[in-house]
Amino acid sequence: MWDPTMTPLIIKGIFETLYMTLASTFLAYVLGIPMGILLVTSEEGGIKPFKALNLLLNIVVNITRSIPFLILLIAVIPFTRLITGTSIGSTATIVPLVLAAAPFIARLVESSLKEVDQGIVEASLSMGASPMQIVTKVLIPEAKPSLLMGAAIAVTTILGYSAMAGIVGGGGLGDIAIRFGYYRYETGVMIVTVVLLVIIVQFFQEVGMRIAQKSDKRK
């Protein structure tokens, strides 16, 4: 029933999926963390209020977040070509993934940082901490467990998006599922890829939660 020539293909798919997911998550965090921090600090009543910047960031984040991923995927093809030289394959998929995930991560980071007890921020201000010191020594370390939890959510969400990129030849398990399972009615391949995707999501979720819980000193 199982076509043995599929096995190396599937293995390649797993690696492509992991590559896309992890690389996109990393790059999206590079963009999303500063955005999330600025969203919190520039807010009215924040540690460095800056109304115009806050408004701009909120607009950018809201607009990017409201575009469905599939549309974004196609809309940014020229930009993707400009950066990677191609619009198909897993490396090309990283570009729209990062663009879609960065604002999402900015929101995750924002909400984690906002959970930090305002009293602790206040105490730090009373000790003469600068806004930069508050970000690096108070907000981020205090929010660490919550940030890690957010990272687990981010990875799994990006993994889901990466599978969607299969529609435009994005590579990875999603691509295989669509090419073989959907277009060629090979149900076996479809099931295997879906199960693998579920396992990978579970794995990241579980590991992320464990690390987050372990790092939390509040209990």
Partner: peptide, 15 residues
């Protein structure tokens, strides 16, 4: 730096 302050809720860094 020369004005210490303490609070009702202690406000220690939990981590």
């Amino acid at each position: 730096y020369s004005l210490g302050m303490i609070f009702q809720q202690f406000n220690l860094l939990s981590q």
